[in-house]
Simulated assay, not measured.
Amino acid sequence: MFKGLGGLGGLGDMAKMMKTAQEMQSKMAELQDSLASSVVQGESGAGLVKVRATCKGEVTGLDIDASILVPSEKEVLEDLILAAIRDAQEKGQAKSGDEMRRLTEGLGLPADFKLPF
């Protein structure tokens, strides 16, 4: 009756795969929540401009050293802010990638396994 599923052993394997998939889904949800609240700091101009952002890329804070608040240097300040934002985003992406690798390896998946997130 269950020949197409490899006998009863096949059902057990399928149940095990479903359980593993559910565990992976649960761990992915936890990781996504963790990354959304995990904050990294990007810097530019030797620390004159600092940006805080979540690992999901949401900028949560900005700190500008008062010594660079010179009206004639407006473009320099804008460039430093953008550079700090990019630095924070890159750090967030790196941390996110590290956490994903750790998760996939913990589930017995290959280290270079790419999840659709």
Rank of each mutant, 00 (worst) to 15 (best):
M100W: 03
G42F: 02
P116M: 04
G12C: 02
V40H: 03
A111V: 15
G92K: 11
I68N: 03
T54S: 14
G7N: 03
L109S: 03
G10D: 00
L62M: 15
V70T: 15
R101N: 07
M14K: 13
E58P: 02
I81T: 09
V51S: 01
V49M: 10
E90H: 10
L82V: 15
L8R: 06
T54Q: 06
L107R: 05
Q93W: 01
T60V: 09
V70M: 14
T104H: 07
P71Y: 13
D98L: 04
Q89W: 10
D98C: 04
M24C: 06
A66S: 12
A111N: 11
G7M: 05
A36S: 15
K27M: 03
D87Y: 08
E58L: 10
D112P: 05
V39N: 04
K91S: 04
E43R: 01
K3P: 01
E73L: 14
E105T: 14
L62N: 07
A84C: 10
T20P: 00
S96Q: 10
A84L: 06
S72L: 13
E78S: 08
E43I: 00
L35D: 02
K56Q: 13
V39L: 14
E30G: 03
A66P: 08
I64C: 09
K16Y: 01
F2N: 09
Q41K: 11
L80Y: 07
D33G: 11
K19W: 06
D33N: 12
D33W: 00
R101W: 04
E105F: 09
V76P: 03
G97C: 09
F117M: 10
G47E: 00
L82K: 15
P116F: 08
P116L: 08
A15L: 08
A15Y: 07
A66R: 12
A83V: 11
T104Q: 08
E23P: 00
S38F: 10
M17L: 14
L82E: 11
V39T: 13
V70N: 13
K95R: 12
A111I: 12
E43G: 06
A46Y: 00
G97L: 12
G61H: 10
L5D: 02
P110S: 09
V49D: 07
Q93E: 14
D33R: 04
T54H: 03
E58R: 13
K19V: 05
K74H: 15
A15T: 05
L115R: 02
G106C: 09
M100D: 01
K114P: 00
D79Y: 06
L8D: 03
A111Q: 13
S67D: 06
